[in-house]
Design a protein around this nucleic acid. Structure first.
Lengths: 118, 118
DNA sequence: TGAATGCTGAACCATATGGTTCAGTGTCTA
DNA sequence: TAGACACTGAACCATATGGTTCAGCATTCA
């Protein structure tokens, strides 16, 4: 069954729904980055990018560590397995639904043929 | 490369970030349903559920048709291929990142061994 | 025709989101 | 020690979100 009530899914899908945050993930997949690095790259204030990082961290997609005055962000903790699993489950149902539809159409065709024979 | 700037991804991930909407998708994967059906099942007003359906429709995940005074909703149009592809791409990068990390660790081990030999 | 049904739209409300500025705080470096 | 640097927190703003109620509007049914 598709799981639909999970605050973790809520948080991660919400995190992924913003292009800046998807960009940050992509960036971090290439290399760790400081908050300043990200702010510069995405043309945003430190405070602004910090909020995005916080959202990603809350969702468990990024982890950060502060050394001295520099906070470094890296891809973190989770690899979106749960989200991928949800999508995969949904896709199975979606496909099943269309096979079902195909069956219905097939039935209609059969019936049409039978009717034609009357 | 991971695509991160897509309003379609924005819309669909946002649509998926709400448990009621994921529930509606699950429900529709079993059978089509009217707006009233969904409102009853999710204990929400017609107006409330209608908004959720509108969000799902905007994201292309549900399609609806009104016959007489009844609007029927069905799983629609897209099968979340793009979203699945994004996640898959991300996961590849994520895994690559950890292999890289493994390489670094391996290098450190080698170096340690070499240092030990000095 | 009159009443019930199913949906719709507008208005409203509280809270969340995505951004900013400004005023710090702590850490380096000359 | 002074100044620059990197970040942080509070306050603010506009808009979006998730929900409601209430007043319609068609459509169906008795």
């Amino acid at each position: 069954m598709v799981q639909h009530s999970s605050s973790r899914l809520d948080a991660s899908f919400a995190a992924l729904s913003d292009p800046t945050r998807r960009g940050v993930l992509e960036q971090l997949s290439r290399a760790d980055a400081t908050v300043s690095d990200l702010a510069a790259r995405f043309g945003m204030t430190l405070t602004g990018i910090k909020k995005h990082v916080a959202v990603l961290e809350e969702a468990g997609l990024v982890s950060t560590r502060k050394v001295g005055r520099v906070r470094t962000c890296r891809l973190g903790g989770r690899g979106l397995e749960e989200e991928a699993a949800w999508l995969a489950g949904y896709q199975r149902l979606w496909e099943a639904r269309f096979e079902e539809l195909a069956d219905v159409i097939e039935d209609l065709k059969q019936q049409e043929k039978a009717d034609g024979r009357d």
